[in-house]
Simulated assay, not measured.
Amino acid sequence: MTAEPEPTPSGTIDRSASTPYYLQLKHILQDQVSSGLLRPGDQLEGEHDLGRRYGVSRPVVRQALAELHRENVLERVRGRGTFVAQPRTSQSLVQFVHGLYDDVAALGRTLRSEVRRFTVEPADHDLELRLGVELDAPVIALERLRFVDDEPWVYTISHVPFALAPDLLTHDLTRLSLYHLLQEVYGLQIERSDRVVEAQAADTELAKDLRIPPGGPVLKLTSVSFTADGTPLETFVAYHRADRSRFEVSLTRSEQGGPPHPVVRIV
């Protein structure tokens, strides 16, 4: 794959450079977003005005905008125009086990949770299978609407076997990480998680919580986490806003020549 040319350092098109005009314009706009000159939610000028501002044709503008749209730097809103996209969270799903708390912190953003339910309840058949507990065994249920920078991002329903963390309910999980508590207070180190991602339409209640239209797309993430000896210690079902998350997959071939091992992230 041929590397892209270095971006033009100024905010103008360098007509003596070998870099195509559309790439120069792409980098100019990208720099404006990175520097904060253009902020999430800001509307860009129309194609005609951008072409006049930078002295390029509309096809050049369209190609630059199309690339930035594919890279989720910009988003088009039908009937309104082109806007700077909201940043999306990054969450490792397969080889690197992180919670949303760590992923949001790595972006320099803030995460808080509105705890909707935090109680002990009997395990149903689904939890019996996922957590490897007996039917009706006590499990801790934690239901949270989670906000990134005060915007609703994901609705999560977590369960932990009561026997592993019997006084978990004494902790305030408004701003604390469940994974951190399990590790630091109870000595439960997550070594592996099995996760499944599905696309789903939000029902009326979920859409209201996430502030999206009813029937709008969400990404349903189901996870079971295990200790080093294979003991299930936590499971969750999370409904992520599809307009705030995306999945990136990197595949590497194993040393034995077997099938590739995926690394999947929400960004």
Rank of each mutant, 00 (worst) to 15 (best):
F226M: 02
R52G: 06
F96H: 14
V73R: 10
R15M: 09
F162P: 04
S250N: 15
Q63H: 05
I13N: 10
P7T: 11
R246P: 04
E114G: 05
D103G: 14
R88C: 09
I157M: 12
L135W: 03
G46W: 05
Y54D: 05
G79Y: 07
S250E: 15
G216W: 01
I212W: 01
N72P: 05
D149N: 15
R244L: 15
F247I: 12
A201L: 14
S34I: 13
P166S: 08
V33Y: 07
E114P: 04
R112F: 12
D136P: 05
G257K: 03
A66W: 05
V263P: 04
R211T: 06
F118R: 06
R53H: 09
R53P: 04
R241N: 05
R53N: 07
T119Y: 04
Q256N: 13
P40Y: 09
V77K: 13
Q32N: 11
R265A: 11
R116Y: 08
Q32C: 07
E6T: 15
S34C: 11
V160W: 01
E184W: 10
R253Q: 15
L68A: 03
R211S: 05
V263F: 15
T110W: 10
R70I: 03
A137V: 03
V61R: 03
G55W: 01
T204N: 09
E184T: 14
R76H: 13
S225A: 08
N72E: 15
D124G: 12
G11W: 10
L182D: 00
L206H: 01
A238W: 00
P9C: 08
Q95R: 12
R130Q: 04
L74F: 09
G51Q: 04
F162C: 07
T174C: 06
A238D: 00
R244G: 09
H240K: 06
T8C: 12
D150S: 05
P9E: 08
